Computed example of a mutant assay.
Amino acid sequence: MKNFHLEKDNTVFLFIDVQDKLINSVFNKEQFMKNAKVLSEVAGIMGVETLATLQYPKGLGEMNAEVKAPIENVNTIAKTAFSAMLDEEFVKAIKGTGKKQIVVLGIEAHVCVMFTARDLIDAGFEVYIPSDAVGSRSEFNYNNALHQLNEMGCVITNTESVMFDLNSVAGTETFKKVQSLIK
């Protein structure tokens, strides 16, 4: 059974291939960028551990500067495999966190996001996909990926649910900072 409750101290945010050349190719670029930036800010405000992958950075470039800014010290791992779990350095990094809940966002939903999520589940992790913070070149591939990710056992969620689940007590200074991100 899926666990629908995120625990801050057991959560890692994983930014998959948030690179400008890929961002510019997704059909839902505006929605994706808005929510990727919000989740990056949430991670920064709340001190949630973050990892990022870059698909073939020599050709596709570095992580988008706006998304990276709030999490400047993010552990960024270059890869050429579509599943990050096929990269030894990534596997060592994700297991080294000691955390089991992975919030996965990025590009493309039907390739690198889906294959990484599938392999994370196979390795015993709980995977949460904020559907408004993943992107694909076509709407069909995006919708198909969300369906498959759900069938695999991922929790399909959204940016605001992640924000408030990780910060579920109103009135604190952290809550106020996180709440201010909703526009």
Rank of each mutant, 00 (worst) to 15 (best):
E49A: 14
F4V: 13
K95D: 08
G96Q: 05
K100R: 13
S168H: 14
F4G: 05
S161Y: 11
F27T: 09
Q179N: 15
A81W: 01
F90S: 07
K183R: 09
A65V: 15
S168D: 14
K29A: 06
V169Q: 14
N24T: 07
S180V: 03
L22H: 00
K176G: 07
K92P: 05
E108S: 10
M85F: 09
G44D: 04
Q179K: 15
E88P: 10
Q19W: 00
V104M: 00
T174F: 04
F164M: 02
N64C: 10
K99D: 10
N158T: 12
Q179C: 11
G135W: 02
E41C: 10
N3E: 09
K21G: 06
V12H: 03
L86F: 13
Q31A: 14
N24I: 00
A170F: 07
K92V: 03
P57N: 03
L60Y: 09
N150Q: 13
V26T: 10
N158Q: 10
A36S: 14
F4K: 12
T80S: 08
N35T: 08
K8L: 13
I94V: 14
M152D: 10
I77V: 02
V67W: 08
Y142P: 03
N24Y: 04
E108Y: 02
T157F: 08
D119T: 08
N144S: 13
A81S: 14
N64S: 13
K100L: 07
I156N: 00
E108R: 04
K2L: 15
G124Q: 07
I156L: 10
L14H: 08
K68Q: 15
V111K: 00
I107R: 07
N64D: 15
L14K: 05
K99Q: 09
F175R: 02
L54D: 02
L22F: 09
I107K: 03
N3C: 02
N24A: 11
T174P: 03
T172V: 09
D165F: 00
K8R: 15
N141M: 11
S161F: 12
E160A: 11
L181W: 02
D165N: 15
